[in-house]
Computed example of a mutant assay.
Amino acid sequence: MDWTLEVVVLPVSDLERAKAFYRDQVGFTLDHDTENEHMHVIQLTPPGSGCSIVIGTLPSQNEMKPGSMRGLQLVVADAEAARNELISRGVEASELMVFGPEDGGTFFGFADPDGNTWAVQQLKIRAEKPLIPLEARGRFGA
């Protein structure tokens, strides 16, 4: 039986600010923004990812302190290019850190406006072998 992680709940203080940050500055795809008399839920997905983040006003989200998530991790094929792209969109990012010469040893980080932190790891193999093949992305909404 497969067990897939497909959603991470992210605690934020301002939904519209967080939506704009992740969509416009970080480049996540806005999957939906649903609001009714009971809740407001926004789901965003990093390009090429099978896992999304959800921000909103559901009880589980309201129990978490905004900015309390630490070390969520994204993976890219080229850390320098990804860092430069974020910086060009106004995201403050740390310098590249190389922990080892092997693939997977290069990182940088950034935080959202509430202080939730992200590590970005370079895995060059993702350029050749993405987790979700390009031809499948349109079929699955990724």
Rank of each mutant, 00 (worst) to 15 (best):
E63A: 13
V76S: 04
G71S: 12
E102R: 14
T117F: 13
T106W: 04
G105S: 07
C51W: 03
Q25E: 04
I55Q: 01
S49F: 08
I87T: 10
I42M: 00
Y22P: 04
Q73D: 01
Q73N: 10
G109I: 09
N84C: 08
F28C: 06
K129R: 15
Q122V: 05
L86I: 03
K19H: 03
A18W: 01
G48F: 04
A111Y: 06
S13A: 15
G104C: 07
S13C: 06
V54R: 11
V12G: 08
H40K: 07
Q73C: 12
L74N: 00
V9L: 14
G109W: 11
E16C: 07
P11S: 06
T117M: 09
S88N: 10
K129H: 13
R126K: 12
G104Y: 02
E6S: 15
A81F: 07
A111D: 06
A18L: 02
A111I: 05
F108V: 00
G90R: 10
D24P: 06
G50L: 06
M97A: 09
G90Y: 15
T57I: 01
Q61K: 00
Q121M: 14
L74W: 11
M39W: 11
A142L: 05
G56C: 04
V98F: 00
L10I: 10
G115Y: 11
Q25A: 11
V54E: 13
P59V: 05
G48Y: 02
P113C: 07
C51V: 02
A111G: 02
M69G: 01
R23Q: 11
R17Y: 01
N62R: 12
G138S: 07
R17P: 03
T29D: 15
